[in-house]
Structure formats: C-alpha cells, structure tokens
Simulated assay, not measured.
Amino acid sequence: MIHFENYTVRRIVISDLENYFSLIENNRKRLEDFFTGTVSRTRTFEDTETFLREIIQKRYAKLYYAFVIENDENKELVGFIDIKNIDWNIPKAELGFYTDEQYSGKGISSKAFSLFVDYCFDHFGFSKLFLRTHESNIAAQKLAQKAGFQIEGKIRKDYKTTKGEVVDLIYYGKIRE
C-alpha cells in the first residue's frame, strides 16, 4: 500500500465492487474510447462483479495487477491503476491509469502515479515500465512526463477504440534507475 496526503493506493478487492462500478459508471463516457475492455465488460453491476473477480484472479498467476486510489476520508475510489502486458523475462510491464473526473486536475493523479511507479520498480523488480496514450490525451502525457517517462515513439495504427477506429499511440517508457 502507498499512503500520501489523504489517499491510499492499494490492490483492488472484491469488497470494492460497488465503488468500482460507480467509478466506471461516473466516467464511462470519458473511458469508452481507450479503456475498451473495461467499459465493455462492466455494463451492468453483475458484469462488473464477474470482471472484477477475473482481474483479481489474474494477480495470482502474475499476469495482471489492479489497484485503486482511495480517498481515506470518504472511502470513494478516486482512480484506477493497472499493471498489464507483463513480460517477466525482461522484466517490463505496461501501466494503465484513469482518474474520476471530479478529482482530475488536483495533483492527486500525479502524486499517486509517481509513487506507484517507484513501487512497481521496488516491489515487482521491473527494469522498465511503459505506457501508451493517444495524442489527444494531454493529461496522460503530462502525467507520464512528471513521473520521469520519456517518449519512445509513436506507433501507427496501434489501438482499436470502442468505436472501431484504429489510432496511433504515443509510447512512453521509464527505465529503472
């Protein structure tokens, strides 16, 4: 667990179901293009429970790790961070991240993400972390840069959005110091 100010970054658990569903539901429109899997698998509360159980199970196989950012005062979920596309041979992994719209622009995401990156290097022993974002997602680009990630390039036609459009993505990487 990572604690800072009035927030905690921790692994998601099944008892987060209601708050997790609310986080997605409140941000569904913002998430639909670039969190295709999450949005498509969480249309109902029951679907979300199945999805949450599946992603929690994947951590036992060391395939995927899901974390939430929780407001310590009201226990609301402020954001979500995941570790995916893990290659233990290198070892490297991709990070994904989204924040509840009402908490955006307050510095919470930047602080949580930077601390989480350090946690990933220290706890999991990754030698490289990367993230992908669309050129329209300026907030994600700033977040990556503040956390010390560098642009590694633009990969053309790299991601299919929920609407079926195949778009270019900017890759950011950070090497363990």
Rank of each mutant, 00 (worst) to 15 (best):
F97G: 03
F45P: 03
H123L: 06
Y20A: 09
L23C: 06
D158V: 02
I90C: 15
G79F: 04
F116V: 05
N85H: 07
T36F: 00
K146E: 12
E25D: 15
Y65W: 08
D16A: 01
V9W: 01
S114L: 12
A112H: 01
I2S: 02
L77Q: 06
D158N: 14
I138G: 06
N71W: 12
T161W: 00
R28Y: 03
R30P: 01
E49Q: 07
S109L: 10
E76Y: 05
E73P: 04
Q150S: 12
K92A: 01
R28D: 06
I2N: 08
E76Q: 13
I138M: 08
S104C: 13
I2L: 10
I24Q: 04
A140V: 04
I2M: 06
I14K: 12
I175T: 12
A139L: 06
A66Q: 14
I151Q: 13
F45K: 08
G96D: 03
Q57H: 14
I14M: 13
E135Q: 15
S136C: 05
E152W: 12
T44K: 08
E94K: 01
I170K: 05
R43K: 12
A112M: 00
F113V: 04
E5Y: 05
D47G: 08
G105F: 01
R30E: 15
I138C: 03
S15Y: 11
I86W: 01
F34I: 13
F126G: 10
T8D: 04
L23D: 07
T133S: 13
K174M: 02
S110F: 07
L169T: 03
E177K: 14
K106A: 01
S104E: 15
G37Y: 09
N137R: 08
D122T: 11
E94G: 00
T48L: 04
I86L: 05
D100R: 03
T44M: 00
V68H: 07
S127L: 13
R43T: 08
N89L: 13
D47F: 03
C120F: 07
R53D: 11
H123G: 02
E25M: 06
Y119R: 08
A144E: 09
F51V: 02
T38E: 15
N27T: 11
I108W: 00
Y171E: 14
N85M: 05
I108S: 06
K128T: 10
T50C: 07
I175V: 15
F116H: 05
R59W: 14
G37V: 12
